[in-house]
């Protein structure tokens, strides 16, 4: 047996330590992000208290006028930071996106998993993954050029005519920049995520179980409905939560089609809105003009709220899609 030289042993040791440090970098970034965002939010948390999440008025105050002192922090006179409008915008757009994306995704995943195979299946799967890789500004551009006019002239009026008697669906369809358009554009962005995860889940359903279904005379549709879907239910809920987290954190596409409303809660399905992520991006110039720096802290707290909501959604998703090794390995999966 070859003797290992001292130098090789030292190199081995150094390499192991170096890789361990690199493997620790995600946690360093996570702690840094959470720490900085929390620390920079403290002045606003003390200034606004719970009104930050219940107030609807976001007002930077008089940036050139008097500065008042509240709880030891200097604040422009008349400043108020209420994020409820943006929290509501984030929730509503992402939920509309889910309502559109979930049925489309599960049906598309069925096709990808069970109806196409070989070259066609491969090409279709690639196209879905290609959709996931399209930059969000490009999707936003498509939203402005295609979806907003379509919602304004056709789809919005169509929905209003059919469902207009329900309060939230009636009212003025407007310019097309708003809640419904944001939801559609977001749906476009999360469909590939949910679809590809769900397709992988469908492929993990044991072939024997599906053959058993066909063997007792089920139609192919019933096999999917009564065997595959119950089998993947937990994982599917996780995939949906994953897409939901992505929809809530999405910035650019929403910023481009949402209409960027401030200080007013959405009145109907077509109202202009803004989400937390889009609003942070939108405030780039305004925040820097506040000499007291309170506007920067307020955006930091908004980022904190967004971070907490998306991470909670993601953690639930991970917990639901966690591999349950023993159960999945039964049988012959393709």
């Amino acid at each position: 047996m070859r003797r290992v030289s001292g130098a090789s042993k030292a190199a081995d040791r150094i390499f192991q330590v170096a890789t361990a440090i690199c493997a620790g970098s995600p946690v360093v970034f996570l702690v840094a992000i959470a720490g900085i965002v929390v620390y920079q939010s403290i002045p606003t948390i003390q200034f606004m208290g719970l009104h930050f999440v219940s107030g609807t008025q976001w007002n930077l105050g008089s940036l050139y006028g008097a500065v008042t002192k509240v709880h030891g922090h200097e604040v422009p006179a008349g400043a108020s930071y209420g994020a409820l409008v943006f929290i509501a915008g984030t929730m509503l757009t992402s939920i509309i996106a889910l309502i559109i994306a979930v049925p489309i995704s599960i049906l598309t995943a069925m096709i990808l998993a069970y109806q196409v195979r070989g070259a066609l299946g491969f090409v279709l799967s690639i196209l879905v993954e290609l959709l996931a890789g399209i930059p969000s500004v490009v999707v936003g551009l498509w939203g402005i050029l295609v979806v907003a006019p379509w919602v304004s002239h056709h789809f919005g009026i169509f929905i209003k005519d059919i469902l207009g008697f329900i309060p939230f669906f009636g009212g003025n369809v407007g310019s097309g920049y708003g809640l419904l358009t944001s939801g559609i554009v977001l749906a476009m962005m999360i469909v590939p995520i949910i679809t590809s995860t769900t397709r992988d889940l469908f492929l993990q359903v044991p072939l024997l179980a599906r053959e058993g279904g066909l063997g007792i005379g089920m139609t192919t549709w019933e096999t999917v409905r009564y065997i595959s879907i119950p089998y993947i239910r937990d994982g599917f809920v996780g995939a949906v939560a994953l897409g939901w987290g992505r929809a809530m954190g999405e910035t650019m596409a929403v910023l481009m089609v949402s209409g960027n409303a401030m200080n007013i809660l959405p009145q109907n399905l077509y109202s202009p809105i803004s989400t937390m992520a889009a609003f942070i991006a939108n405030q780039l110039d305004s925040a820097q003009t506040d000499a007291t720096g309170m506007a920067v802290h307020a955006l930091s707290e908004l980022a904190l709220v967004l971070l907490v909501i998306t991470l909670a959604t993601n953690l639930i998703a991970r917990w639901l899609v966690r591999p349950r090794g023993a159960r999945r390995k039964v049988g012959v999966s393709r």
Partner: peptide, 28 residues
């Protein structure tokens, strides 16, 4: 644990990462 933390990091919204960079690197 590492895999989990990497996935948590990938779930952080991109605008939050940008704003973190602004607070820490651009300002601080």
């Amino acid at each position: 644990v590492i895999r989990f933390l990497a996935e948590v990091l990938s779930g952080v919204p991109s605008i939050v990462i940008g704003y973190f960079g602004y607070l820490l690197m651009v300002l601080e």
